[in-house]
Design a protein around this nucleic acid. Sequence first.
DNA 1: CAGTTGAGTTAGATTTTCTAATCTGCGCGC
DNA 2: GCGCGCAGATTAGAAAATCTAACTCAACTG
Lengths: 202, 202
Amino acid sequence: MDGILVSYRLPPLNGLRAFEAAGRHLSFKLAAQELSVTPGAVSQQIKHLEQILGVPLFQRMPRGLTLTGHGEAMLPTISDAFERMSAAADAVARTLPTKALRLGVSPNLTEDPHGLLAKLANTEQSPDYVQITSTDDVANLLSGALDAILRPGPGPYPGMHAELLNLHQAFSPHAQASLVVWPGLAKCREFLKTRSLLGSPG
Amino acid sequence: MDGILVSYRLPPLNGLRAFEAAGRHLSFKLAAQELSVTPGAVSQQIKHLEQILGVPLFQRMPRGLTLTGHGEAMLPTISDAFERMSAAADAVARTLPTKALRLGVSPNLTEDPHGLLAKLANTEQSPDYVQITSTDDVANLLSGALDAILRPGPGPYPGMHAELLNLHQAFSPHAQASLVVWPGLAKCREFLKTRSLLGSPG
DNA sequence: CAGTTGAGTTAGATTTTCTAATCTGCGCGC
DNA sequence: GCGCGCAGATTAGAAAATCTAACTCAACTG
């Protein structure tokens, strides 16, 4: 009958996440891209958060965003808190979700005249520790469906570990490509082996 | 075509919330109580989180819980991050969600022989700044449906601002009651007025 | 002035999350 | 030693949160 339990008040966490991304980009559109949803979803989440808090966080202009004083006051702490959570979770999470590194390769790179992809996928040069999929979509990293992605060009990929490689036997039409992985996987054996199969640091 | 956007990886936030509460209480049941859900929901959320992270966070015994090494490593940082978020949001949130203080009064106190409740609710002594509901349920505070709750007995109400009052014209059968509010509302005008109407510091 | 861009809004679909009921294993008291 | 109670697991189905898709609006662009 006794022992009333309460804890600190917490606004909707997904709304906070949307706020944090939108505040960082100062754009609902970019935030939506980062979160792999539509801008409308971000708009709704943030509107909901603002209703709960009772204060507006953004000043909407027909084109672009500004943080209100409240938003500006809140953003650094929220960003920081998410970063800490992310770091804590990464430190604990199993480094490799499966026994093999699940690698997505950009379709632009699969026009492969030298068969490097095929080698990676099928020959003894590509043992069990790498699984290849033909995809370009960074969302696969975010969702955890893939561990790494190989894409032409240098990036940037803020928040991820990305290495620009000189591909060993050039994938046409690109000589260089970025190998992008979760930061936590940058030192894992499967990643290092795969990297050396693909090329050398550029 | 360019401008790939990624951010830090983040496990399911609601799962983290459940983990944090369960880790603090070392009990799914108490965590569920704190979060105003059933223990089954907590169990599911945490199982999901463990699947995403790829590591177990709790060691389940038929009776009671233990944190695994991973859980123990993660808990302090996660708790800390939630506290920071909560503080940042509280600092920014409007102190009073509506113009009136929405007060819940324990049904145990409504057997009110002296009509103080009625006075509060209906007479000129209770102006527009207080709205009374007959309820006991702390979940109404957590959900934001109410701003304050008056309950017999001393608490404790960890994380909330609670004041033990000697009720002015004793509510039967209790002479003392706790006025429990969100910490952010402890200094607001409507709260102070309502408190003085109810009683004096005990 | 037409075209583009970014944000708001809505209804309906989808997915997530919760509940309620049942099951399991262990400790405790009688 | 043997029910009884307690805490957690599990499930199907219900409920709620969230997302999308389509459209609107306002301002900047050339």
